[in-house]
């Protein structure tokens, strides 16, 4: 086993990204098998592998996944957006408020996405034009967005029932497949194509690997980062709308702490915080691992505190494995 792996990685030395992703999917499969089997043993019944579990779980993570895919692109350029959680809170309150004023559902969705884009523009402006470090800038805007959310909602949660909004999170296609999962899949495919096949994807990677060399080769580094901040803003508000739909409630607390969940999933997927490295499929695996871990452990009646500990250990283990593999690959050159 170890030997074949060694041979594999010798052959694939240049493509550390792909084989790391492969590793993640193997971990994922092992995890799924483990939860399936233990659930069977413990309860004598298959709770984990049932449509009743898998489908709601996937719709619950679809909004995280959508944001994670887009954030992966931004992280690859070496920038960060922590304001996504605040964006979700604001969007969800805004949507509920507009609905309560009797505004048409489609219009509400469009307004919220436009506001999301504006939030992205604001982040992009602060980071690329004023030159503020993106971590600091977006921690700042995170607080601003959430504060506006509290102001809009007066701190209360507001019911948000509307056919259009309902469909966004709870509608189904072909009777069984929830609409947010479809959205998630579309985003995965789009971002995958962008990052692996497109011109802008190439520029994103090059910026992450060496911003100076990219700039001196005529790449509009700031422009691309700006664009990705806008994408992030739009993705977060789409996520906020889905979450509003899933909970049927607009509340300023929505998305609290979500930025860390999303960032951990992206990092787990093999994206480097320093930029230049990352794969959309890796992020997909990261999102699935973290949420299946929660789902499976909760299924097994494991206390939340232990789940937190296990999550942390998994994150560190996986990232440490990347580092070890990386340094081995370097030593072999």
């Amino acid at each position: 086993m170890a030997e074949t792996r060694l041979q594999e990685s010798n052959k694939e030395r240049k493509k550390v990204g792909i084989s790391n992703t492969l590793m993640l999917f193997i971990v994922l499969v092992i995890m799924i098998a483990f939860f399936g089997i233990t659930s069977q043993i413990k309860f004598g019944q298959q709770f984990f592998f049932s449509i009743l579990n898998i489908i709601p779980m996937l719709s619950n993570i679809s909004y995280i996944g959508i944001i994670a895919c887009i954030l992966t692109m931004l992280l690859i350029t070496g920038e960060m957006d922590f304001s996504i959680g605040g964006n979700i809170g604001l969007t969800s309150c805004l949507a509920a408020l507009l609905l309560s004023k009797g505004i048409n559902g489609v219009l509400v969705v469009l307004i919220c996405l436009a506001v999301g884009i504006l939030m992205g523009v604001f982040n992009g402006f602060i980071v690329t034009r004023l030159g503020v470090n993106s971590i600091i800038a977006t921690i700042g805007t995170m607080s601003i967005w959430r504060g506006i959310g509290y102001t809009l909602s007066n701190g209360e949660s507001m019911l948000a029932f509307n056919p259009v909004i309902d469909y966004l999170g709870r509608g189904t296609i072909f009777k069984y497949i929830p609409f947010p999962i479809i959205l998630f899949i579309i985003v995965i495919i789009l971002t995958y194509i962008i990052m692996n096949r497109s011109k802008i994807g190439r520029r994103i990677y090059a910026i992450g690997v060496n911003p100076m060399a990219s700039y001196l080769s005529g790449t509009n580094v700031k422009g691309i980062k700006f664009l990705l901040f806008i994408f992030c803003g739009a993705a977060a508000s789409l996520g906020g709308l889905i979450l509003t739909s899933l909970s049927a409630v607009g509340m300023p607390q929505h998305g609290q702490g979500l930025e860390l969940t999303v960032v951990s999933a992206v990092i787990l997927g093999g994206t480097a915080l320093s930029g230049g490295k990352g794969q959309i499929l890796g992020t997909l695996a990261g999102v699935l691992i973290l949420s299946i871990l929660y789902n499976g452990l909760t299924m097994l009646n494991i206390m939340y505190f232990y789940i937190q500990i296990i999550r942390g250990i998994v994150l560190i283990l996986v990232v440490a494995t990347y580092e070890i593999r990386q340094s081995r690959a370097l030593r072999r050159v």
Binding site: Y205, V209, N210, G276, K277
Partner: peptide, 10 residues
């Protein structure tokens, strides 16, 4: 290395 090449790319 700093200004010319994206070293981790091909």
């Amino acid at each position: 290395k700093m200004e010319g090449l994206a070293l981790a790319l091909g």
